[in-house]
Design a binder for these strands. Structure first.
Lengths: 344, 344
DNA sequence: TTGAAAGCGCTAACAC
DNA sequence: GTGTTAGCGCTTTCAA
């Protein structure tokens, strides 16, 4: 293993000079810098991470806590995780991959051992048990991807799901739809008070109230059978339903398929607006009007906020990303008054 | 920050005693151990990771390199990653999350800086450019999830895809199918010589040769349009095709849908066997006869192998997991000689 | 069964 | 612009 001392000797300078060439924390003459850099390259020197962390009390590691659950759509989680890792590297950080399994204990362990300089948490619940810990140890900054109920002294990034819900309703209402249904995430997601699902619903209801349209909300498990059952109940209760908002990637294709089987054409008979990953909207059997989950941007901004807090020390803030509606083939104006029962 | 020295003082023992209580590397009297443990708890002590890494030259971190690509099914990647992280924790390791983006340079960086004690690589290609580096620095063990062309001095874990391909053919042939088609991964996956896709194909062809059945292989992009085109070509070329092997999670549902649209009933007219994640097989619109990708087991075994190499120093080995065929509703005996063109 | 002390490789004052 | 040096907090000989 090549050490800094060996590089220093090889270049004929002191250890601190090598260190400063590496960190750029003080000015170095061009000649010295060149010499040192050549030695580094020739010897294949890599600074020892442990030593550096010990001496500087900075590990250059950001911990990322991902949920273990798979009822929230996995590709989005992965897209965020990869965006975090990629963005972190551009700032000189590596990413430690923690699963939610350990719960709050992981926060204690990682901050306590100075393993990571900061944390990014995904899948935050409204009353998350990890939050008190994060609020305290202010020295180790944290950024949440998601929005808890109380954001006091917390930094958060998320899609503005409230605005997203409202936007979907506005779009459908503008096409003339007066009876809407929200096909939601699996019941478990609501039961554990996941912020994004509830906030979307709030936005939907608020705007629906303003515009005088009716809304029915139904959580939905993955799969075709579950979807068929859900749709039956919806049309039983509200036969006039003509607009769907679906926030559940696993439910998108089942929804389209079951509607087709029932002889309801999209968008002639019913319109569908999805809140989902862009790829899902594009590859569905009907190209979907949708609000995309900006996973990459969320990951990238989380890193930027973390790095900012590590560098300066700005006030906590909540960064909400405005939703963008992409209008495509699954939504259109109300065309027919009645649904042709049993039509092919 | 509480240090080991403070714990020692609080417990009235020397620093080394505290260290040995923690590591268990020498015997400690029950009384001393109790006293030290109490102090640790009272003071909320967590060993400093950097200091520990520096002194012991072990970081207790395993680096996991995940692919950036999303043409291989993301939920499987995530399942493996989570299994790795979970298994690693049970052995006292944390996981560093590296994306393939940096390529071989990441290997150099992580091993050079002693950031990680070992590496696990996913999405290995037949001729992977990271392999030479791994073979060299023998001190830092590596385990591949996947199988490159040359496994000399390398440790690998993977599903036995060759046997998987053979197993699928055997099953379909035993049901009387004589003309098979393989719906494969996206062309890009084959073009970059990804081992698992090619090995499956080898297994399919070998067994098909032995059993005298014909096989057509078609890579397939995600989406319904691509699938419709692919199926047309297959049935044009081999109208008698009655058995499908699909190895592409993104293609599963499109395949079933397009077959249905063409009036080909599953399994009455054609049988389908999938090589895919268990969840996909279970939630498809027809419950699929399939060989599951044992993602969790792969992740877990990769960690076990890494830990073993870190502990003892066993010879490199290749661990292939035998495939398990689950017979379900999508495969059955050949029933009809001819396909009813245009039937509903 | 325990303690004392010498590093591990690097950073960052403090000197010049 | 550069060198000297005192730690950072832990592990692990060596001694007792």
């Amino acid at each position: 293993m090549v050490t800094l001392a060996e590089v220093a000797q090889h270049a004929g300078v002191s250890a601190s000079t090598v260190s400063y060439v590496l960190s750029g924390k003080r000015s170095i003459s061009a000649a010295t810098r060149t010499r040192v850099e050549r030695s580094i390259r020739q010897l294949g020197y890599h600074p020892n991470a442990g030593a550096r962390a010990l001496a500087s009390s900075r590990s250059n590691i950001i911990a990322l806590m991902v949920p273990l659950r798979t009822d929230i759509y996995v590709p989005v989680m992965m897209e965020i995780a990869i965006a975090v890792a990629t963005a972190a590297r551009t700032h000189g950080y590596d990413v430690l991959f923690l699963t939610g399994e350990e719960g709050p204990e992981a926060v204690r362990r990682v901050t306590g051992s100075a393993l990571a300089d900061a944390m990014i948490l995904m899948d935050v619940e409204l009353q998350d048990e990890r939050l008190p810990l994060l609020r305290d140890c202010g020295s180790r900054p944290a950024v949440l991807i998601g929005l808890p109920a109380d954001t006091d002294r917390l930094t958060c990034v998320d899609l503005d799901f409230h605005a997203t819900g409202a936007l979907c309703v506005t779009h459908l209402a503008s096409l003339g739809h007066r009876e809407l249904a929200v096909i939601g995430e699996a019941p478990a997601v609501y039961e554990r008070h996941t912020g994004f699902a509830l906030r979307t619903l709030d936005g939907v209801r608020e705007r629906a109230g303003e515009l005088g349209v009716r809304v029915l909300h139904r959580p939905c498990e993955a799969g075709y059978a579950a979807m068929a059952a859900t749709l039956s109940r919806i049309f039983d209760e509200r036969p006039g339903t003509s607009g769907f908002i679906v926030q559940n990637e696993y439910a998108v294709e089942p929804l389209l398929t079951v509607l087709r089987q029932q002889g309801r054409a999209v968008p002639e008979d019913v319109s569908v607006v999805a809140v989902c990953q862009e790829q899902v909207a594009a590859q569905a059997s009907v190209r979907l009007t949708s609000v995309a989950i900006p996973a990459q941007e969320m990951g990238r901004r989380a890193v930027e906020l973390v790095v900012a807090k590590l560098t300066d020390d700005p006030a906590p803030e909540v960064a909400l990303i405005p939703p963008q509606l992409t209008i495509s083939a699954s939504s259109g104006p109300v065309l027919r008054g009645t649904h042709r029962e049993g039509a092919p």
